[in-house]
């Protein structure tokens, strides 16, 4: 195996603190109540939000808040070898962590006895699809008009060839030493997801968090722009009198 980082330049030509190219779009699906699309590197993920709506089966409804259901799914053509469409152990786990990363931001008490469904469909996969999924899902929730105290944005940091790097690609994730996805509510500064696969020293961990938060800040700018483009494109300027 060759080196993954040469003179501070990674395999795909990025510096260690650089994100992959990204594109965010809101309101891409007409039938869903809210939707968003994200491209991050080779990742292509589409997110649809339905709800709040009546809960079926009725017994899972909660009297004082809404239930949030989340499905992360990789389409059979999203990988280089066909993936069976049945939800794998990994997908079930990621669905759960995404749900838990988004739940703190949704003001669930505003919608008692209802359900909100979030569907994430990975059309093409690369490293860091759960982070890209969370970033897009927050946009789709906002597009659906669900009350939330902040957006959520996620980004991974990790250790590759002994160096801390931002936003790992698929190969860096597999061959590197550590991968740490972080999701954060950018305005309130609350971390809603923190996973770590690998071993980091205290110093590396701190460095990783700082890198990931900086990546999240940049992605949040993109989120904001995507929402503004969708809703206020025809608006003359930001401040209205």
């Amino acid at each position: 195996m060759g080196k993954l980082i040469n003179n501070g330049i990674r395999l795909d030509g990025r510096r260690v603190d650089e994100l992959r190219p990204y594109k965010l779009e809101v309101g891409v699906l007409k039938n869903a109540d809210g939707s968003a699309y994200i491209e991050l590197g080779k990742n292509k993920i589409i997110v649809a939000v339905y709800g709040p709506k009546e809960v079926h089966p009725k017994h899972i409804a909660l009297p004082d808040r809404c239930v949030i259901r989340c499905r992360y799914h990789m389409s059979p053509f999203s990988t280089d070898v066909r993936k069976t469409p049945a939800p794998s152990r990994r997908e079930i786990e990621i669905s759960k962590v995404i749900r838990e990363a988004l739940e703190p931001t949704i003001l669930v008490e505003e919608y008692p006895r209802t359900a909100i469904d979030i569907f994430l469909e990975v059309l093409q996969s690369d490293g860091g699809s759960r982070c890209a999924g969370i970033t897009a899902a927050a946009l789709a929730l906002a597009d659906a008009g669900i009350s939330m105290c902040d957006l959520v944005v996620a980004c991974a940091a990790g250790k590759v060839d002994g160096t801390m790097v931002l936003d790992l690609s698929d190969i860096e994730d597999k061959e590197g030493e550590a991968d740490m996805p972080v999701a954060v509510m950018p305005n309130l500064g609350i971390i809603t997801l923190l996973q770590l696969d690998g071993i980091l020293t205290h110093e590396e961990f701190k460095q990783g968090i700082d890198l990931a938060l900086e990546g999240c800040r940049r992605l949040h700018e993109a989120q904001r722009k995507a929402l503004m483009d969708r809703y206020f494109k025809t608006a003359p300027n930001q401040e209205v009198e």
């Binding site: 902040d150 957006l151 503004m228 809703y231 206020f232 930001q238 209205v240 009198e241």
Partner: peptide, 10 residues
Amino acid sequence: KRKYVIPGEL
């Protein structure tokens, strides 16, 4: 005063 906002915006 008026302002266009997104969730979480001050």
